[in-house]
Design a protein around this nucleic acid. Sequence first.
DNA 1: TCTGGGGTCCTAGGACCC
DNA 2: TCTGGGGTCCTAGGACCC
Length: 439
Amino acid sequence: MKILMFLFGELLHMSFIQRTKKIALVDCNSFYVSCERLFNPKLRNKPVVVLSNNDGCIISRSTEAKALGIKMGEPYFKEKNVIIKNNVQVFSSNYSLYGDLSRRVMRTLKRFNPEIEIYSIDEAFLDLSNFPDNETEDIGKEIRSIVLKWTGIPTSIGIAKTKTLSKVANHIAKKKQSGVVSFIGIENIDPILEKVEINDVWGVGKQLTKFYHQNGIFNAKQLKNKSNTWVKKSSNVLSSRTAMELKGISCIDLEITSSKRKSCIVSRSFGKRVEDFQELKEAIAGYSLNASEKIRSESLVTKSITVFIRTSPFQNRYGFYSNSKTIDFPISTNNSIEIVKAAVSILETIFKNGYLYQKAGVMLSHLSDSNNEKNLFSSERDEKINNLMKSIDNTNYRYGRSTLSLASAGVHKKWNSKRQHYSKIDTADFYSLPTIKAN
DNA sequence: TCTGGGGTCCTAGGACCC
DNA sequence: TCTGGGGTCCTAGGACCC
């Protein structure tokens, strides 16, 4: 009887309260700039930009900086005039700070539903299906205000039936005062999609934009109304998924379980060009150490390693050279010594004298779980190496990265990245806590 | 003078096999 | 001299994302 009453209750419930699939995309506004502002309130309402590694490009802009016409991804030196003229505040990127604040934002979001997909450092998809349809927008506003209150980071939130549509909603929310846009309950979204340019649709990049333009598709509505078979046949499955998602049919699932990564790259542009084999070797050894440490911290081992070096693609007068090579390890490993050795041996085969190198990198691929890799050849020696690696990692964790390193990684690092506008804020470092003066 | 870094997925085409 | 067809697996490279 109780069960019957329960079922009846549920039916009654369902008939009154609509609960369709609802996905929210929460995206931090000008994330890196917002992080810098958090510890430096003087930056509020002022134009601010954050630069990529090596102070190369502009990768985050405050609203005020956008208004000055400073473009995303533009080389810093090209915008320097505008920046100086308008007294734009400039920062080198500080990823440990951004990573820390990102974790705080994500932790806050999990209060609303622990099942979230962390899509990037500054955005997450959140399943809101459990909330009633007519409360969607209010929930969005609540999420926004709590994230702001608890972390100090402003966000924009788009809510819709599919991921692609929630991206569209988010895009519109960015321009709205409330910062929240929900498509839930809107019968016909064609008029909205009509105003969304095709290149602003998630999954449509430069090449696809060109292709769609050639076929008379200029906005999201036009793609939505194309037949699925046409899209699939003339492009590919990814494009057809995008089109279906615009129709409101969910094809791209939320990835709640954080699957382990499949590759790990460490690469940098040099602060100044490198010609010397020895210096290049130091850089490659250093990157290999970082990559090894990263995969160890995630209990992964690698089956193959790729090393690449290249000169600048923008300065042809010195001659362009780019090369890479991959080799396999006989047995998957995460041993720094072995990985550095392999990397250096690759470098020896691809290095060519007489070039000014601008960038180099190491990629570890075919990663797998280290716990599943215990094999017949495991020996006492492996055990010892594992322990050595563990103690290196622990020491570096406690006393700062590269406290313990290998000699081959070098000490001077003349080639290190440029970081002239570094804010030196470290939320994990007691001595960089902001001080508050009384009176 | 100065142009980031780190990922994922898909596909075409080659190697190989029967 | 004649020299198939179909399947699988792997990889490099392209496209896309933030």
